[in-house]
Design a protein around this nucleic acid. Structure first.
Lengths: 350, 350
DNA sequence: GCCCGTCATGCATGCGTATTCATGTTTGCG
DNA sequence: CGCAAACATGAATACGCATGCATGACGGGC
């Protein structure tokens, strides 16, 4: 057995197999021309030595690391866990590695970017917070493509993939209106994030079109988390005693769930009988029996595919696609948190 | 602006700053001796060129990548999401990167290991499935330390960090008994995993000590997931119509939650009035209002620290610690899913 | 049977940085 | 003020692999 720390190189394998180091390289590259017989001899020698090619070294010459960076904020939102999972599966299946960064929600991703630049990653997937345009151009200048996931950054030429959040917000508003709601609350997420902004905007637009007055619409900051939404809900309706609206829109599912639990278990409010609720994302957790949350489904699969497509990892020579922002339509999923039949006339506010 | 793909090297910086490449290297290494003045000049030149040191290249000479591999199964269990988060935070704070692998639950990790060997990672954290002893020794021979998280592998000399699962299982049994339970069910996880085995063993041992008969104890395989546990619970008690026991032990919180929801919302069983439930892990989700799950807390923070300690990434020259298995005690967290006062005599079984 | 094309293989070099060794320079102390 | 020691710096080399180029072997077509 080799002593600790010893790692055999292609030279060791070459010596044992009686060939040159170049042949060893060719035996493992797969593409280069080499006789099947010598190839087998080399693989046999490699097996004996427990040889594993050093990707670090090969990256130095090929200028490809086969590493993709994934920057995540807010792992408290299961949506991003599923995103991580999907990307991980797809990339591993392609023989690529995932370098994961977590950044505090709300924090800049710039520092993370700086770190991964050092590792010469082949691409960056950003599913968190903000990114300065300076960082974007630094990456682009170095030939590293970036794709924003579930967000876009106005004025940036970073490409992005996202759900059509404004349209989704309208779908929710529509569903509430159809069920007879006339007064509303929204639990909002990161005020700097376009995702939350767009969902709110679409939602509000549709309501205003329908003649809902602004005074019948309140916004509650929910910090994009279960706990934040739960606390904000209690604070608003129990402590400050604002009247309950007919319907409450959680800008994402996890916040809607936090609100529902607080309403039901701390305040004795029935959902949907006393108050309708809807979320956004369609995380599997929202489908569970206690919630059966009405929501807008984000087509994760399609978004992930589209994101990888934009990175075009397979063809580094192709120029980086800049400024792409193709929103994908989300789909309304009616479940149990909106009363299906138009309900009886709801009590007047105040 | 540089054209796409251009990356300046230490030579470019050296030329601009009027020094040698060696000095540039020293300016960035932090430790080497260099005049503060020339250092500033170099940093200034580097800034102008958007120079970022190439970690890939430096790894080639230093034989350290500052990359740690994290292998995860079952991201559907929030426990491992929190594990990922903690490791990620700690390692990033140390200036290290996390290379994430996800493997299908139940699958071998061997292939993942093979991939990360190519990347010369400084250490491996395994929080998934099985690992062959062959892989362990390959890693160890190459000087790559491995630490198993929340599991151990009998006969392997890989070190591990885990909660004292058997003792935890006993704690749950004890709590059930104290509350007056005399018949029991367990929802078990991966039958090959020591984690599930140990929890079951401790739980059963304690019950048998108390004179509970084996016929008053059933085991239900729950696939380690919310959905698996939910389905298994329904299948067992609703379809096969086995009598409800007094108490049900979900081998982990997420399965306990799946069981609770099924009992309450598909079967009309009250928890804890009709049936007590406990879990294991103390995931934040189990603390939420609808569950308030009684459980055994795994000290994640301490386990993560211990795991990183075993890897001793700071001192690669220290020999790899083999075969360490220091179970850390878990703590019983009484919440609402076990009736606190000894309940009224429970109805007889059958 | 000869010539040229095809292919397997080896040699040599480059990728970007860290580090050793040698050299020149400054500092400290008597 | 002088000498040694500490220090700043540059030149050269190694890290492990991929690849362009050269060479030699082999085969096919006429």
């Amino acid at each position: 057995m080799a002593r600790q720390g010893s790692r055999s190189t292609s030279f060791d394998v070459a010596a044992l197999a009686g060939v040159s180091q170049a042949s060893v390289s060719r035996a493992f590259s797969g593409s280069a021309s080499i006789t099947e017989e010598t190839r087998q001899r080399i693989l046999e020698a490699a097996r004996k030595l427990n040889y594993v090619p050093n990707s670090i070294a090969s990256s130095l010459t090929t200028k490809r690391t086969n590493i993709v960076a994934l920057i995540l904020g807010n792992l408290g939102n299961p949506f991003y866990v599923h995103v991580l999972h999907r990307f991980s599966q797809k990339l591993q299946a392609q023989g690529r590695q995932v370098l994961t960064f977590t950044v505090d929600p709300g924090a800049e991703s710039d520092e993370a970017i700086l770190h991964l630049l050092k590792y010469q990653v082949d691409g960056v997937i950003l599913a968190a917070a903000q990114l300065s345009t300076r960082m974007t151009s630094i990456c682009h200048d170095r030939g590293i493509p970036i794709v924003l996931f579930n967000r876009y950054i106005p004025g940036s030429d970073a490409s992005g993939v996202r759900c059509d959040n404004a349209a989704g917000g309208r779908l929710i508003a529509e569903a509430f209106l159809r069920a007879g709601a006339r007064s509303f609350a929204m639990i909002t997420g990161d005020p700097k994030g376009t995702t939350s902004q767009d969902r709110v905007r679409g939602f509000v637009e549709r309501l205003l079109e329908e003649g809902i007055r602004r005074s019948d619409l309140i916004a509650i900051p929910g910090l994009s988390s279960y706990e934040g939404a739960a606390e904000a809900t209690y604070e608003t309706f129990a402590e400050r005693k604002l009247p309950l609206p007919d319907a409450l829109f959680g800008i994402n599912d996890i916040m809607a769930m936090g609100a529902i639990d607080t309403l039901r278990y701390r305040m004795g409010v029935r959902v949907p009988e006393d108050l309708m609720v809807a979320g956004f994302d369609d995380i599997p957790e929202g489908r569970r029996l206690p919630y059966q949350l009405t929501t807008v489904q984000q087509p994760i699969e399609a978004m992930v595919d589209e994101a990888l497509d934009i990175l075009h990892l397979d063809d580094p020579s192709r120029p980086i696609e800049r400024g792409i922002d193709r929103p994908i339509a989300g789909q309304l999923i009616m479940r149990a948190t909106i009363a299906q039949p138009p309900p009886r006339p709801r009590r007047a506010r105040r």
